[in-house]
C-alpha cells in the first residue's frame, strides 16, 4: 500500500520506462492473482470430481482396485439386470421418494403461503420448526421416529413409516425454495385479479401458480432427491423387509468383496449418469441453478 501511495505522490520523477515497468509489474501481479483465483477454483472442481471419476473408471475395470490393473471390461454392467434385489430396491426407493416428495410439496407449498401471506403470532417459530427437519442430524431424527413409531403409534417400521419420515425431511427444502419465490412475487398482480372478480382459487390457478410453478418443481425435485439418497433415517424406520437402494448399496460396501465392489461401481456410475442427464435437462428447461443459489427472482421476475 505504501508503494502505491508513493506512486501517486511522485509520478513526475519517474521516467516513462520505469513507469512502464511498474505497470507491467502490476499487471503481471494482477494476472497472477487472477490465475491463482481461477486456479484454486479449478482445483476445487477437481476435488469434487476426482473421486466420482475414479468410480466411473473402476466400473470399467476387471478389478475394483486401481492396481494391479487387469484390463477393461463391460462385465460389471452386464450383471446389473440380473440383480433382483437391486431392482426391487430401486423400485422401493422410487416409490418412497415420489410419495414423500409429493406430501412434502403439498404441505410445504401451503405452509409457504401461510408464511408469506399472513401475519400470525407464532410465525417465526413456525418457520424455524419448518426448517429443523433439514438441520437436525439424521441419526437423531431416525432414532426419535423409530421409538415413536415403535412404542407410541401403531405404525410398524416399514414402507409407510419411511414415507412419513421422508415427507417431514423433505418439507424444509420445499419451504425454503417456495417462500423465497413468494417473497419476491408481486402481490399487486393477485390484487388486480381479485379486483376483476376472480375468486382466490381462480387467482391462484391463473396468476400465482404459473409464476411459482418452477419453484414448486424445484422444491419437489429437492425433496425427492433427499429422500432417494437418504440412508440413515430409513435405516431406523424402514424395517427388515423394506430395502431402499441406499441400504442395498451400504450392504455391498460393508460386504466389500471384489464382486460386490465391482457391481457397486457400475451401479454408482449409472446413478451419476442418470443424475447428470436429469440435471442437464432440468437446467435447460428451468432455472434450477437460480433456485439452488437463491437468485431466481433476479433472473425472471416479470
Amino acid at each position: 500500500m505504501a508503494t502505491e501511495t508513493d506512486e501517486r505522490t511522485e509520478p513526475a520523477e519517474r521516467t516513462d520506462e520505469e513507469f512502464g515497468d511498474r505497470l507491467i509489474d502490476w499487471r503481471t501481479r494482477e494476472q497472477l492473482l487472477q490465475v491463482g483465483l481461477y486456479g484454486t477454483a479449478a482445483l476445487m472442481l477437481l476435488f469434487l470430481w476426482v473421486p466420482l471419476l475414479v468410480i466411473v473408471f473402476l466400473s470399467f475395470t476387471e478389478s475394483p482396485n486401481l492396481l494391479p490393473f487387469e484390463g477393461f471390461t463391460l462385465y460389471n454392467y452386464t450383471r446389473v439386470p440380473g440383480e433382483a434385489d437391486l431392482q426391487s430396491s430401486v423400485v422401493t426407493s422410487f416409490g418412497i421418494a415420489t410419495l414423500s416428495a409429493t406430501i412434502a410439496t403439498a404441505i410445504g407449498v401451503l405452509a409457504s403461503f401461510a408464511l408469506t401471506r399472513y401475519r400470525f403470532r407464532f410465525r417465526e417459530l413456525y418457520r424455524t420448526f419448518g426448517i429443523v427437519p433439514m438441520i437436525i442430524p439424521g441419526v437423531i431424527l431416525g432414532v426419535g421416529l423409530r421409538f415413536y413409531f415403535q412404542f407410541l403409534l401403531p405404525v410398524e417400521p416399514g414402507f409407510l413409516a419411511t414415507v412419513l419420515t421422508h415427507s417431514l425431511y423433505g418439507l424444509p427444502f420445499v419451504l425454503l425454495i417456495v417462500t423465497a419465490r413468494l417473497y419476491t412475487f408481486d402481490e399487486s398482480l393477485e390484487e388486480a385479479a381479485r379486483d376483476l372478480g376472480a375468486d382466490p382459487l381462480t387467482t391462484f390457478r391463473d396468476v400465482t401458480f404459473p409464476v411459482i410453478a418452477p419453484a414448486i418443481a424445484a422444491g419437489f425435485l429437492f425433496a425427492w432427491v433427499r429422500s432417494f439418497e437418504d440412508y440413515i433415517r430409513a435405516l431406523f424406520v424402514s424395517g427388515v423387509e423394506v430395502t431402499p437402494l441406499t441400504q442395498w448399496m451400504f450392504g455391498k460396501i460393508t460386504k466389500a468383496s471384489a464382486e460386490n465392489l465391482n457391481l457397486l461401481n457400475s451401479v454408482s456410475t449409472l446413478v451419476v449418469l442418470v443424475i447428470a442427464i436429469a440435471l442437464a435437462a432440468a437446467m435447460n428447461y428451468g432455472n434450477v441453478s437460480g433456485y439452488v443459489a437463491g437468485t431466481a427472482h433476479e433472473d425472471e421476475e416479470e
Binding site: N65, T254, K255, A256, S257, A258, N260, L261
Partner: peptide
Amino acid sequence: ISSDTTFIQEFQQ
C-alpha cells in the same frame, strides 16, 4: 472389521 467378506477382500489386498 464387521463382515467376513470385507475380511477376505482386505486380506487379499
